[in-house]
Computed example of a mutant assay.
Amino acid sequence: MTGTSRRPTDSRWRRWYAALMATRLTQLGAGIVVGLVALATFGPVLSPYDPTAQALLHRLEAPSLAHPLGTDQLGRDVFTRLLYGARLSLGIALVVTTVRLVLGTIVGLVAGYVGGWVDEALMRLVDTLLAFPGIVLALVIAGILGPSLTNVMVALAVVGWASYARLVRSSVLSVREREFVTASRLLGRSRAHVLGRHLVPNVVAPVVVLATLDVGSVILGTAGLSFLGLGAQPPTPEWGTMLAAGRDYLRTAWWLVNAPGVLIMLTVFGFNLLGDGLRDALSPTQSAQIEQL
């Protein structure tokens, strides 16, 4: 009996997964993301090199069997540093995106459901943040706080939650007057119950899509601020820092810039493709079709 009760849910999940993986581009994006996560998780364990250990006798060696992506100006293995940098960059992107999502969702839910002067005050704050280019505002905040990865994370989290708040608020405004929400109010349900039971499930899909697409922008922002010297500091193996260190060797050691640059591009590309696939799979039309199957 227990197995029978699980079948409709399991079948629905399988149909949703099939809808998500219906296109080659989404499959490519998912493959890139899974591959990067696997490299970040297991790659450093398999690498025989220390990402910060210097070997000046082997500095600026071209790619070879011993060093697949060559060595840098201090003799460190570039491939190993990229693997450790993947762990660092993906971890930062996950933390920053989670903070953005949670903070923006809470603000959007409160603004959309409570309304009145609360909504007006919160939305004016959101408008103020959205009036500035995100990377410029993050640059100012990181510059004031000082160069460190923690301060970069704070800066990127502060400038990014406003988009989530606006998206969640618009979703709440479209749902709060529907019949099932009105019925719940008439039954005397608390605001917390209405928010948790009826409103939050209806804003999950667009927020998840935005968060997936946002991971790429966080990685770009982290690398950009580190490239400018406001993020990770040497010898931390971070992609933006590696780009900054390799820019002086563009003509003599092309791999120092190309390797982290291509990896950043692939990471952003993979998350963007996966986000587009999630958007299509979680669209109202697609969801309705899945429910009817």
Rank of each mutant, 00 (worst) to 15 (best):
P51N: 03
V99K: 04
V95D: 01
T41M: 15
D77W: 02
V102M: 04
T80I: 02
W16P: 05
A93E: 06
G29P: 11
A86Y: 02
T23Q: 15
T98W: 06
A66M: 09
G70W: 03
L28Y: 10
A40Y: 13
A62D: 11
L69T: 13
G35F: 15
L90K: 06
G43Q: 08
V37K: 07
H58Q: 07
L88Y: 06
D77C: 10
Q73E: 10
I32K: 09
V95S: 07
A55W: 03
A55P: 01
D50G: 07
P44R: 12
Y49D: 02
R15Y: 06
G35E: 12
T98K: 08
V37P: 09
A62M: 13
V102N: 05
L94V: 14
G75V: 00
Q27V: 15
T71R: 02
R100C: 13
T97S: 04
A86F: 01
Y84P: 04
G29S: 13
L60V: 01
A19M: 07
M21P: 06
G31K: 11
L88E: 07
L90P: 09
Q54C: 00
R100H: 10
Y84G: 12
R15M: 10
I32M: 09
W16E: 12
L39M: 13
W16D: 12
T23L: 08
V37E: 02
L74A: 01
P48N: 09
M21N: 15
V96Q: 04
R15L: 15
G91S: 07
Y84S: 09
L82I: 11
W13K: 15
L101T: 10
A62G: 09
L20S: 08
G35L: 12
D72Y: 00
L56H: 01
G75C: 01
A19F: 14
S47H: 03
A38E: 07
R24W: 11
T80G: 04
T71V: 03
G43L: 11
R87T: 08
Q27W: 15
R15N: 10
L56K: 01
L57F: 08
W16T: 14
G35P: 08
T80V: 04
W16K: 12
A30M: 14
V96Y: 03
L65K: 10
H58F: 06
L56R: 00
V99R: 13
A22S: 14
R15W: 08
L20C: 10
A38Y: 04
A40V: 04
L88W: 06
L60F: 02
D72I: 00
G43R: 08
V37L: 14
D72W: 00
